[in-house]
Amino acid sequence: MTLLPDPWWPVAVMAFIVGVDGLLTFWPPKVIADCLDGVGLPRDWWWVLAVVKFLAAAGLIAGFWIPGVGLAAIVGLIVYFLTAAGAHLRAGYIGRDFWLNCLGMLVLNVLVLVICFLV
Rank of each mutant, 00 (worst) to 15 (best):
A33Q: 11
I32R: 10
V110N: 00
V69P: 02
F81H: 15
F98R: 12
W47F: 14
A72M: 08
F98N: 05
R96D: 09
V31Q: 00
V75W: 03
G68A: 09
K30W: 09
P28K: 08
L55Y: 01
G70Y: 00
G19E: 04
V107F: 14
L24W: 08
L113N: 00
G40F: 13
G19M: 03
A91E: 11
V107Q: 11
G38H: 07
L118G: 01
G22I: 04
F98C: 11
W47Q: 02
L100H: 04
L82N: 10
A56H: 01
F54V: 03
I61S: 11
L100P: 01
I66C: 05
F54I: 09
G104R: 15
G76S: 03
I115L: 15
L49E: 06
V20P: 04
I74G: 00
M1I: 06
A87N: 09
L3W: 08
P67E: 00
C116M: 14
F16D: 00
A84C: 12
L55F: 09
T83D: 06
G59Q: 06
V107D: 07
A84F: 15
A73M: 03
A12D: 04
P5Y: 08
G70I: 02
F26C: 07
V13H: 00
G70L: 09
P5A: 14
A56Q: 02
V114H: 01
W27S: 07
P5T: 15
L36D: 05
A72R: 04
W46R: 15
G92I: 11
G70Q: 02
L23I: 04
L77E: 04
R90A: 10
L71F: 14
P42K: 06
P29G: 08
A91R: 13
G19T: 02
G19Q: 00
G92M: 02
V18A: 01
A72V: 14
L41Y: 09
L24G: 07
L49N: 10
L111N: 01
L89M: 01
L111D: 12
F26I: 12
L3V: 01
G95A: 10
L82C: 14
G76L: 02
T2H: 11
F54A: 12
P42G: 03
P7H: 12
V13Y: 04
V48L: 03
L111S: 06
P67L: 05
